[in-house]
Simulated scan of single mutants.
Amino acid sequence: MRINIETGELLAFIAVAKQSSFKAAAEGLFISQPALSRRIENLENSLQERLFERTTRRVSLTAAGKLFLVHAQAVIEELELGIRSIELGTAQRREHVTVACVPSVANHLLPQVLKRYATEHPNVRVKIIDESATDVLESVRSGEADFGINFIGAQEAEIDFEEIMQEHYLVVMPDKHPLANERVISLQALAGEKMVSVSSSSGNRGLIDNAFARVPHRPVIQYEINHVAGAISLVAAGIGVALLPELSIKNAPFTGIVARPLSGAGIVRSLGLIVRKGNVLRPLSAKLASALREAVSSRQE
């Protein structure tokens, strides 16, 4: 069967999928909106599938569009690799691994693992999808990522979740804060504090809200921000106190803050390696997953 799809059509499709907007995608590709629309229409005609649901307010991928996006991105990546190979005059190996993980893993665990992995597999291309827990889960579910490191997915029927560590939350505060001299801190002691927290859409926030619901005097969340790194910055500025996972605090590039454990059971989340149910990792992916397991184990010893 002849494939009658042009590269420009794939690039247009990927741009619209990422921007969720024909206008923004056209501007990014430096073409007119009618030209962009023609490319999408030609692609949909070739595939005999609708790729986007269009309304006056938004553009979203159809089920077929979500499936095709994974393959379209892979085709463009392989084409770019081929072009670079020609420019360098060398034949580069086409082996690649894609791992999805939450930002705390990408920032504080993955770099050292990849440094060792690269010495053994210098020609393997590694793509890292460092996004929210929900995005990591979707990347694995869709097949875009070979595997993921995430703290959600254990309850998903389509996902195999292998716990690799339990991560405790710490109370993070300015080093001049009155509670900074305490060895451990209770949730009750945070009543009346101006709390800094990640947004309500975050998995982190759900754990924190559940913990606050168990104490008589619930601390008030005064400041809300989308990312953990931003929360640390606000605490470092002396604005408030935050409850944050310990992995995000390790080696954080901030001075003037301290972290203390919570008393009692505290707040704990399970960090796991996730793959699509029944999926067997390719050897190179399996080796990177194993290296991550070993890195986590060594941190806990």
Rank of each mutant, 00 (worst) to 15 (best):
S297G: 04
R293L: 06
G28R: 11
V215M: 00
A106L: 04
K194L: 09
H96C: 08
K250Q: 12
G192T: 04
A100E: 05
L281P: 13
V280S: 15
N45E: 13
L43W: 06
I164K: 02
A231R: 07
I40V: 15
N210G: 04
S37F: 10
H217S: 10
L114R: 09
R116H: 05
K115P: 03
L262C: 10
F254W: 11
K66D: 10
L47Y: 04
A64D: 09
V113R: 01
S270V: 13
S21R: 10
A145F: 08
V280R: 12
S270C: 10
P34V: 02
A145D: 05
Q73V: 06
K66N: 09
S199A: 14
S197V: 03
D130F: 03
M165K: 13
E301Q: 15
N226V: 11
Q155T: 01
I152D: 04
N226D: 12
Q300P: 02
P122E: 06
F212K: 09
E53V: 12
L69D: 02
E193S: 08
Q155I: 00
E80G: 09
V105S: 06
A211I: 00
S298P: 12
A236V: 12
V126A: 11
E6Q: 10
E294N: 07
S285G: 15
A213P: 02
P111W: 13
E53R: 03
L88R: 15
D146L: 00
T56Y: 08
P261W: 09
S202P: 03
G240C: 01
E162V: 08
Q300E: 12
A213S: 12
V99C: 03
L11C: 09
E27R: 11
I129C: 10
S233A: 13
L244H: 05
L110W: 06
L47Q: 01
T90F: 11
I249N: 06
P216V: 07
L67G: 06
I152S: 05
R293P: 01
L244E: 03
H121M: 15
E138Y: 05
A74T: 09
R94P: 04
K115F: 03
G153Q: 05
L61T: 10
G238V: 01
A15N: 08
E49W: 03
D175L: 05
L47W: 02
R183N: 14
S142W: 13
I208A: 02
V215K: 01
L179V: 08
A180V: 08
N181R: 15
V296R: 11
S297P: 00
A17D: 02
I31Q: 09
I129E: 14
C101M: 14
L288E: 12
